Computed example of a mutant assay.
Amino acid sequence: MPRMHALELLPDDAGCDVVRRDWQLLRDAGVPSQLDHRGATNSPHVTVLAAPALDPDDERRAAELVAGLLPVQVRASGIALLGGTRVSVVRVLDVPDELARAVLLLRSRVRDVQHLGWLPHVTLARRMDRADVGRAVEVLGHEDAVLTLASLRRWDPDAGIVTSL
């Protein structure tokens, strides 16, 4: 399976602190956390799309359609599980309609986008055993948080390069 190129929205410093606090809570509870991901580009983000390849037109469209809406406030309003036997734990984001429309339009113009539709979220943990989910939800709590999405980046895994758009 090819490595996926991605376009991602990044929170500002305060938003990163909110997400990293959740990552730390999970680690302190002894369950998987994104803090366990050692990749140099691992940082809180919201994936706009992932595809086997992106071209300069995709980047230009992303800058025109999405980057122009930034900064934008979103609300982390709930916890969801994605996956099967092992799950990803995510905070689901309420995003303004204008951002959702722009992202869906962008996604419709990029070839071979992974996954249908768009579920805006921030990943807190990956590959968690379902037996650990109750503990994760307990330590994360139930309070909403407001994040400001401040920038857009492109991840090129083939070249190992992150580019701000």
Rank of each mutant, 00 (worst) to 15 (best):
M1E: 07
H5D: 07
A6Q: 15
L9D: 12
L10H: 12
L10A: 13
P11H: 01
P11A: 01
D12M: 01
D17F: 13
R20K: 10
D22E: 07
D28E: 13
D28A: 14
A29P: 15
A29C: 08
G30V: 05
V31N: 03
V31Q: 06
T41R: 12
S43C: 14
S43Q: 14
P44I: 04
H45N: 08
H45Q: 12
H45S: 15
V46D: 01
L49S: 01
A50C: 05
A50D: 11
A50P: 06
A53Q: 09
L54W: 06
D55I: 09
P56S: 04
P56C: 00
D57N: 07
D58F: 03
E59F: 00
R60W: 13
A62P: 08
L65W: 15
G68V: 10
P71M: 08
Q73L: 11
V74W: 03
S77Y: 08
S77E: 04
I79N: 01
G84W: 02
V87I: 11
V90E: 00
V92E: 04
L93S: 07
L93F: 00
L93A: 09
L99P: 09
A100L: 10
L106W: 03
H115T: 09
H115V: 06
G117F: 02
G117K: 03
W118S: 08
L119Q: 09
T123R: 03
L124S: 01
A131Y: 10
V133C: 02
G134M: 05
G134L: 07
R135Y: 12
V137T: 09
V137S: 07
G141F: 02
E143Q: 14
D144Y: 04
V146C: 12
V146A: 14
L147G: 05
T148W: 00
S151A: 14
R153L: 09
R154Y: 00
D156N: 11
D158C: 13
D158F: 13
V162A: 09
T163A: 02
S164V: 14
